[in-house]
Amino acid sequence: MANGQSALLLQRQLQELTKNPVEGFSAGLAEDNIYEWDVLIVGPPNTLYEGGFFKARMTFPETYPMQPPKLRFISKIWHPNVYESGEVCISILHPPGEDRWGYEEASERWLPVHTVETILISVISMLSSPNPESPANIEAAKEMRDDYPAFKKRVQRIVRDSIESCYD
């Protein structure tokens, strides 16, 4: 898909989200760049992340939707499927095709049918159901498995900090 077509597709997705907001997140352009979006994800109800406000940046390649965007939390977050850098590690954000390590089916990886909405719903699902078996953050996964009370306490502190930073 040519550069202009990917920009038009992203513009349509932005208009759709503006007209029909989805509960749990908001998204908009970062500095008028159609390939850079600021995202605010609200921690999902009935999870450790409930009530938190997590800022993230979604960066789209000019080859979107043939290739996936990258999503990186700017807010501090402690989660087995988020690298220390804040980059989210979920199957649908992995490049399309077969997984050379054999962990994922091609159907679980990026497909051009995904939209900003489906990506962010997947991230909210990831917050609700961490996968410590395939961790990006090994320390968080280990703490979640071996010392759940400490993991829970750390996440609760991060949620509190995220709420306070919204009022700064």
Rank of each mutant, 00 (worst) to 15 (best):
A140S: 01
G24N: 10
P45A: 13
T47V: 02
Q67A: 10
V42E: 15
I119K: 11
M144V: 05
I90P: 00
N137I: 03
S162L: 04
L111I: 14
R154L: 15
Q13A: 04
S128N: 07
I119H: 10
P95R: 05
A56R: 00
E105R: 12
A30N: 13
M144Q: 04
P96G: 01
D32L: 07
K55S: 02
I138M: 12
D146Y: 13
Q15W: 08
I121V: 05
Q156P: 04
P149F: 04
R157A: 15
Y35F: 14
A30V: 11
H94C: 05
P44M: 05
E36N: 09
R72W: 08
N137W: 05
M58R: 08
D38K: 12
R160D: 09
C89V: 01
Q11R: 13
L111V: 13
E16S: 08
I124D: 00
F54S: 00
R72K: 09
L127G: 02
G24M: 11
G97M: 03
L120A: 05
S85H: 04
A141F: 01
I121K: 07
W37N: 03
L40R: 02
I92T: 12
L120F: 08
Q15T: 07
E117M: 15
E36S: 02
L40P: 01
Q15F: 15
V22T: 10
L93K: 01
R57G: 05
E84Q: 12
D147E: 06
S165M: 07
L9M: 13
L120C: 08
I92P: 06
S125L: 03
L8V: 12
V123L: 04
N20K: 04
M1N: 13
D99H: 01
G24F: 09
E108G: 11
Y64R: 06
N20R: 06
Q5L: 13
P80Y: 07
A106G: 07
E31N: 14
R154T: 13
Y64K: 09
P132F: 07
P149W: 04
P95V: 02
Q15N: 07
G4C: 08
L17V: 01
N81C: 06
E84C: 09
P80G: 04
D146I: 05
S122V: 03
P69G: 03
E87T: 01
